[in-house]
Every structure is written in C-alpha cells, then in structure tokens.
Amino acid sequence: MPTISVITSVYNGGHHYIDETYQSLREQKLPGDWEWQWCVQEDGHTGIAAAVLPEDPRISIESGLPARVAVARTHALTRATGELIRTLDADDVLLPGALERDIETLERVPWCVSACLDLLQDGSTSPGPRDPLGGPVEPGRFYEEVVENRLSVQTTTFAAHRSLVLALGGWHALTGAEGVALLLAAEVVAPGEFIAEPSLLYRKHPDQTTATGRYWNPEEAATRREAGIQRARAMRAAGWTWS
C-alpha cells in the first residue's frame, strides 16, 4: 500500500495533547488505497508515549537519549516506510483533508508546506498573518525570509518525499529551528509548493517549548537561524539538485 509516514517527537511533559493529535490523524481521509503510518519518538526514556497512546498497528513508538526535537525526529525517520513523510508536533491537530492535500501536491513536487491556524487557549483560532499565495514557491523565497527573520510559514506543516529528507540528512542537529533548516535545504535542491488551505491547528499554550523565555535567548536563537542559512548557502554554492 502507498504510505505517508507522519513523524512526531514527544517528551514527558509535552504529551498532554497527544491524544487529540492521534484522533485528528485517525480522522484523516486518504485518496485511493493510501495509508498512514505514525512514527512517534520519545525524547527520553520515560515511556510516556507508549503509556498514553493506544495500541494501533499503524503506530511505531520508540525512545532514546534526550537530545531535543531534531534528533528525535531523525531517529523516527529511520522507521518510516512510506514514500512520503509529514511532520506533526505532539500538541497540534491535523485538519480534515490535510494529508490528502499533501499527497496530491507531492505528486507534482518533492516538498510542500501549508497554511495553519493558531489554536488559542480559549479555543478560538487565528490565521497566519503573512501566508504566501497558494502554488509554487518562488526559489529562494523562504531563504530570504529567514535572513530577514520573518519566515511566513510554520515548518511543522512540512511534507516531502522521504528520499529527499534522507538525502538532506534529516533534521539539522540544533536546539530549535530544525524544521527551518530542513526547509531551507529542501528549497535549495528542489521545487516546492505552498498549500493555502490550512492543514493544522497550531496549539499555543504556556507549556510549549517555544513559549519559554530561555528558548528565545537572542544569541542562541541567532545561532540556530544562522546554521540553517549557512548550510543553504553552502548547498547552493555546490550546485547540487535533487530529482
């Protein structure tokens, strides 16, 4: 069966909404005979993911030494059997048709990102303030946005051919912005599209990693951004393309 593998990192303390994440995945309607696989990787060895999630043969759960999201996702990637992959955070909610639109888009291009809605604590939602127009992404668009520190998309919506993600080495070994670095690398070597219809409720809550002041230490945040920029520059200079 053709399969899309969904990649999720979870840690003890960041698991409180993962049951809603699972329900949103269960409710996805896929085209034709497509199936989904959920590769969940715990960042640590507490067993929290296995304790919270139900038994489902479509779910693969493993754990490892705590090393943050990039490492956990890359470990999960080794268990992915689908020709396509999709990133999904453990506290977010897929909207109806999200994976179907990813699959249809990835028939045309190697990677894509999509719009999402912020899910606020009072249950209300808010659209992204700078969403691009739907369709092909102009080469270098997201690179220029990151250089100017104004990225217009959430990289947790990233979907791609698994072979592309493997060729790029998975998620950049950073303490954050690992999805941004992967997006910039993919943008260098292959064309992509932006899906204007929202695919995700991006949950905003005080326990999320990016809500802590420590995460936004100016020097560390600048280093994370610069790491993705430098890799993209080096790849562009090498002239490598993926097909």
Rank of each mutant, 00 (worst) to 15 (best):
W111L: 02
P132E: 07
W34G: 01
R73E: 06
R233I: 13
P218Y: 03
A159L: 12
N149S: 15
C112I: 06
H172S: 13
E145Q: 15
I85R: 05
K204S: 00
R26S: 04
L53T: 07
S24H: 07
R162P: 08
R162K: 14
D19S: 15
C112E: 09
H75T: 12
D207V: 05
Q230W: 00
G123H: 02
E20T: 07
K29F: 00
L182Q: 05
C116L: 08
S60Y: 11
S243G: 11
E220F: 00
R79A: 14
W38H: 03
A232G: 06
R101N: 09
S163L: 10
T105I: 04
S9P: 14
L120N: 14
L25Y: 01
G135F: 04
C112W: 05
L106I: 01
A238I: 00
P136L: 10
A237P: 02
T105G: 03
E220S: 10
L164C: 08
R225S: 07
I7M: 15
V52C: 10
G169E: 08
L53E: 10
P132K: 05
Q37T: 02
F158Q: 04
S5V: 07
Q28T: 03
A238Q: 13
L184H: 06
G179K: 08
P2W: 07
E145D: 14
P66N: 05
R162V: 05
P129R: 06
